[in-house]
Design a protein around this nucleic acid. Structure first.
Lengths: 127, 127
DNA sequence: CGTCTATGCTTGGTCTACCAAGCGACCTAA
DNA sequence: TTAGGTCGCTTGGTAGACCAAGCATAGACG
């Protein structure tokens, strides 16, 4: 742990690109946390080899790995998912929609949900 | 499209299990939307073969596929991710945290972020 | 009966996410 | 100089996500 940050030919110093793709984003967050690939690897239980490939854009990590990385970097999973294009937008919208709310309600049976949705549609659909 | 819903030995009628695992959940939502495997397949650009396996719990789909399915079923990606165990909890928490907010701010340079975080920590950490 | 269409399921294979092991470059200490 | 440490990166291999094609069943219509 002693060290300062050493500089390497293709090291973090090369972070000139825009951090709009996932790899650059993760690399930036990692550097802001002052973590090496192997340190982040240990924190996230993801191999340093794969982390390197992810940061360089060789592979697109699964959500499971993304979540581990997010936890290790103390980022919310939602933020990282949004960067990965797995979530539509910024975590700002909280519109669920009537139909989805109905379908997700666990106290309703399937038949009750169908009936509710049918009625809801009959109210909202102009024939 | 004419048809009513046909019943098959291991068909939707067998939806007696609790919809707490992802497969059962997707199958339930699909049946509530009155979609066949192939219809959902076309809407989501996921093969019906794979959808069948996902619903039966043979495979755990990637987030990309999950998002496609969520869109096709008109569910929010967050809800489905939560079911898949990819999100920590219900979409109810809106705590971002100061450090994360800093790191995600695009108008700050890396140095500015580091400085801010350092100051923030100096305020919040008891020595 | 036979044929058509729709359903969900199974199979064989391809692609890629992911890891263990190792490499070259760089630094510091003896 | 050599030895030991860390850095990021590359390579070979394995497991599983994912699909195209085909199967079996069931209803509708002739």
């Amino acid at each position: 742990m002693g060290g300062g940050a050493a500089r390497y030919p293709r090291d973090l110093a090369a972070g000139d690109g825009d951090p709009w793709n996932l790899g650059e984003f993760i690399r930036l967050q990692r550097s802001l946390a002052n973590l090496s690939l192997r340190q982040l690897s240990e924190l996230s239980n993801v191999s340093n080899a794969y982390l390197s490939q992810v940061e360089r854009g060789v592979y697109r990590p699964s959500a499971h790995v993304l979540k581990s990385i997010a936890d290790a970097l103390k980022l919310s999973a939602e933020s990282v998912y949004a960067r990965a294009g797995l979530l539509d937008e910024e975590p700002a919208q909280r519109n669920v929609g009537v139909e989805e709310a109905i379908r997700l309600d666990e106290r309703l049976s399937a038949e009750q949900k169908e009936a509710l949705i049918r009625v809801y549609r009959s109210f909202t659909t102009r024939s």
